[in-house]
Design a protein around this nucleic acid. Structure first.
Length: 240
DNA sequence: CCCTGATTCGC
DNA sequence: GCGAATCAGG
């Protein structure tokens, strides 16, 4: 299989949608998940949270958060879930443009984005030190302890939900759930609202579970044990 | 073990 | 450019 424009487009969409490389490979067909990942990288699709890189990303994020969070961190729900360095609280009034708290690597251009907190957003406290803010999961500026009102925009909803595509059928096995170890026996008919797949574990080496293999594959029995006469290959009435 | 994505490297 | 093999964390 080659990477036609359509296939690339599908890959992009699904990748953006957050589907795993395995799922995308299944959908496209004819390619392995490795192929999908390789192609995604070649296309420049930005990496999504990887189990391997997660620590790195988290550390970077934590560092940024630490940098942004001056003074006392608000007690309820600090941003970094786990910060490797104990994060010594920086001096209350560091010079403008506070340097990273952690004194390890200067980290030159590594963490570029990270939503630099807008300076001078809200009214400054009595002291004229720079207003330092931590940043929430969605890049929202968190409210500082002393603030009476949200910094700039109204506080974000409690949680940013990853836009769950969720089919009408919850818990049912949809097309995208299929993989080579899940029973692909269709239940219902395509187009029907509740069309889904069996989803049980496959009978190893087969596309269906044991039960549905029983439907899909009829044992070749000795003739005398055969119930009806062997069905005509074609042209005969459909039998069921 | 299973899963995941990242990376490498021969083709 | 492609993707299997390999790596490495969850």
């Amino acid at each position: 299989m080659s990477w036609t424009d359509e296939r690339i487009d599908t890959l992009k969409k699904m990748w953006d949608k957050g589907l795993t490389a395995t799922q995308i490979a299944e959908e496209l067909g004819g390619v392995s998940r490795n192929a999908v990942i390789g192609k995604a990288h070649r296309l420049g699709l930005q990496s999504r949270p990887s189990p391997v890189k997660q620590n790195e990303a988290k550390a970077a994020a934590a560092l940024v958060a630490l940098t942004a969070a001056a003074a006392a961190t608000p007690e309820p729900a600090p941003v970094p879930e786990e910060a490797a360095p104990p994060a010594p609280p920086p001096a209350p009034k560091p010079a403008p443009a506070p340097a990273p708290v952690v004194e390890a690597e200067p980290a030159p251009q590594d963490a570029p984005v990270a939503a630099a907190p807008a300076p001078a957003l809200g009214p400054r406290p009595a002291s004229d030190g720079p207003v330092l803010r931590s940043v929430g999961p969605g890049g929202f500026v968190r409210q500082n302890p002393g603030d009476q009102a949200p910094p700039s925009t109204p506080a974000p909803p409690r949680r940013l939900v990853p836009a769950k595509p969720s089919e009408a059928i919850a818990g049912k096995t949809s097309l995208l759930d299929l993989n080579d170890r899940i029973c692909k026996w269709p239940l219902g008919h395509p187009g029907e609202p509740d069309f889904h797949f069996c989803g049980d574990k496959v009978n190893p080496g087969f596309p269906y579970c044991v039960a549905h293999c029983g439907h899909a594959y009829q044992a070749q029995l000795p003739r005398r044990d055969r119930r009806p006469a062997p069905p005509l290959p074609f042209g005969g009435a459909a039998r069921r």
